[in-house]
Computed example of a mutant assay.
Amino acid sequence: MTSTIGIIGVAGGLAEHIATEAEARGHRVTAFVDDSERWSAPGTAVRRGPRDLTRADLAEFDVLINAYQVPTGRERDHLAVNRHLLWLLARSSVRLITVGDPGTLFADASRTSIYWQQSVIRGPRRDAGRAMERVYFLYKINRDVLWTYLAPPIELVGDGERTGHYRAGGDVLLTDEQGRSRISNADYAVAMVDEVEAGAHPRRMFTVAA
C-alpha cells in the first residue's frame, strides 16, 4: 500500500536516505528541510523548520517521520521539537515515527543502566542522550499520538552500503561479535520504511543494527 509520508530533516542528512528508500518503494514523500535547494533525494522538498509546522501542513500525511538533526550545542532543542510535533498530531490519524538516540537504550541485557549514563562521559553525544531520554519519556506518557521511537545503534555509517538486512531489537543496545554497534544510513532507512509499511511497533521503542 502506498503511503503519503512527511519527513522532517536537513539536506544531506539521514532524511535523504529515508526519502530515497521510501520513494523507491512507491511511497509519496514531502520533506520539510532547512535548505530545499540542497535537497538531493527524490520527492518534494519544502523549506521549513520543524517548529514552524502547523496542523494544516501535516494533515495530508499517513505518516510523519522526524529525522531532524539539531545543531551541535543545541541538543536541548530535541525536546521542544518533539513536544511541538506531539501537540500538532494529537488525536489525528497521522502516525509519528521518530529517529531516536542510542543513548536512550539500556546498555546491556541486565537493563540496570541507560547507555548514555553509563558509557558517554561528556560532550554533544551525552547531551543528546540526556535530551532524548526526556523526549522518550514524553512519548511514553502520550496517549494522543500513535508514535514509534526507532533508536539507531551507536554508529551510523553515512556512506555504508545498502544490504537490505538488519537485526531488530527492543530497548537494549545491539552489538555484534566484535562489540560494535553500527548500521549504514541506507540500512537504517530500510528499517524505517519497513516500520512505515508494517506498523509493527505502535507506541514502542525499538532498535536496529547490522
Results as ranks from 00 to 15, higher is better:
76 R>E: 15
29 V>G: 07
114 I>Y: 07
97 I>V: 14
49 G>H: 14
39 W>F: 15
53 L>Q: 05
123 G>W: 05
96 L>F: 09
89 L>A: 05
111 R>K: 09
63 V>Y: 01
104 T>Q: 02
102 P>E: 03
29 V>R: 04
107 A>F: 01
116 W>T: 04
16 E>N: 08
120 V>N: 02
62 D>G: 04
62 D>W: 07
95 R>H: 11
49 G>Q: 14
61 F>G: 03
62 D>H: 15
105 L>K: 07
119 S>R: 11
122 R>A: 15
91 R>K: 13
35 D>R: 09
59 A>I: 02
106 F>I: 01
92 S>R: 13
56 A>L: 04
85 L>A: 06
36 S>F: 03
57 D>R: 05
10 V>Y: 07
54 T>Y: 11
55 R>P: 13
56 A>I: 02
34 D>G: 14
33 V>H: 04
85 L>Q: 13
50 P>E: 11
90 A>G: 15
69 Q>D: 13
25 R>Y: 04
45 A>K: 05
96 L>P: 10
16 E>V: 02
16 E>F: 04
76 R>A: 14
45 A>P: 02
45 A>H: 06
52 D>V: 00
58 L>K: 07
101 D>P: 05
46 V>A: 14
59 A>P: 09
124 P>V: 00
116 W>S: 12
73 G>N: 03
73 G>I: 02
10 V>L: 13
86 L>A: 12
91 R>P: 03
99 V>T: 14
106 F>P: 06
122 R>W: 10
57 D>Y: 00
55 R>C: 02
32 F>E: 08
97 I>K: 10
10 V>Q: 14
21 E>L: 01
54 T>L: 08
23 E>G: 13
66 N>Y: 00
43 G>T: 02
50 P>L: 00
32 F>N: 04
118 Q>E: 14
84 H>F: 04
18 I>D: 09
112 T>Y: 06
15 A>K: 03
91 R>G: 08
110 S>Q: 08
30 T>Q: 09
14 L>V: 09
60 E>A: 15
72 T>G: 12
112 T>M: 07
38 R>G: 10
71 P>C: 03
10 V>T: 14
79 L>M: 05
87 W>I: 01
51 R>P: 05
87 W>S: 15
118 Q>W: 04
70 V>I: 08
30 T>I: 07
65 I>H: 03
82 N>P: 13
123 G>R: 12
16 E>G: 08
32 F>R: 04
87 W>G: 15
91 R>F: 12
83 R>K: 11
70 V>P: 08
92 S>Y: 01
108 D>C: 04
29 V>E: 02
67 A>Y: 06
39 W>G: 06
37 E>V: 02
39 W>R: 07
31 A>E: 11
112 T>F: 05
104 T>P: 08
100 G>V: 00
34 D>Q: 10
70 V>A: 15
79 L>Y: 12
16 E>A: 11
120 V>Y: 08
85 L>P: 12
82 N>I: 00
